[in-house]
């Protein structure tokens, strides 16, 4: 058997050692947070003063994640059904089709996207009024 050492191939991986002296690429979460980006598909928000309760969002949702429910709070006087959407985050896939079809553009997605809970039943979410 011929002995032909691959010197370059053996030594070149050691270039990785110089990374030891570089600043780490990771960030120290949660002290340092990642820069937030406009237009991220996070949680829903629904401006109740604009929502007309048309249920277009419910109709387009392929996961059947949206319920139309009545609430005690005042809603838009133009809201013919008196219902507003409530979203089941156990089913939602954040495709944002519901925000695309919203006629008064009241349903939107915000940057916030972290929610931990110990009960699976708690993930029925009323969009924030903003």
């Amino acid at each position: 058997m011929q002995f032909s050492p691959d010197i370059k191939g053996t030594l070149s991986p050691f270039l990785a050692v110089k990374k030891l002296f570089e600043h780490p690429k990771t960030i120290c979460y949660p002290e340092v947070k990642k820069e937030q980006i406009d237009g991220y598909r996070g949680f829903h928000t629904n401006l109740l003063a604009d929502c007309i309760g048309c249920a277009n969002c419910q109709d387009v949702c392929m996961n059947e994640a949206i319920d139309m429910v009545t609430i005690a709070k005042d809603v838009n006087p133009k809201n013919a059904s008196g219902c507003i959407p409530r979203i089941d985050y156990g089913r939602c896939c954040w495709c944002s089709l519901c925000t695309d079809v919203c006629p008064p553009n009241s349903l939107k997605l915000e940057n916030e996207c972290i929610w931990a809970d110990d009960k699976a039943d708690n993930f029925l979410y009323f969009p924030k009024d903003k």
Binding site: G53, D67, M68, V69, T70, S81, C83
Partner: peptide
């Protein structure tokens, strides 16, 4: 099905009822 979503309203019926 997971319980807790029975209060879903049929929007068309609700509009009719309110009218």
């Amino acid at each position: 099905f997971r319980i807790g979503r029975e209060d879903n309203k049929d929007v068309k019926a609700e509009v009719k009822r309110r009218k």
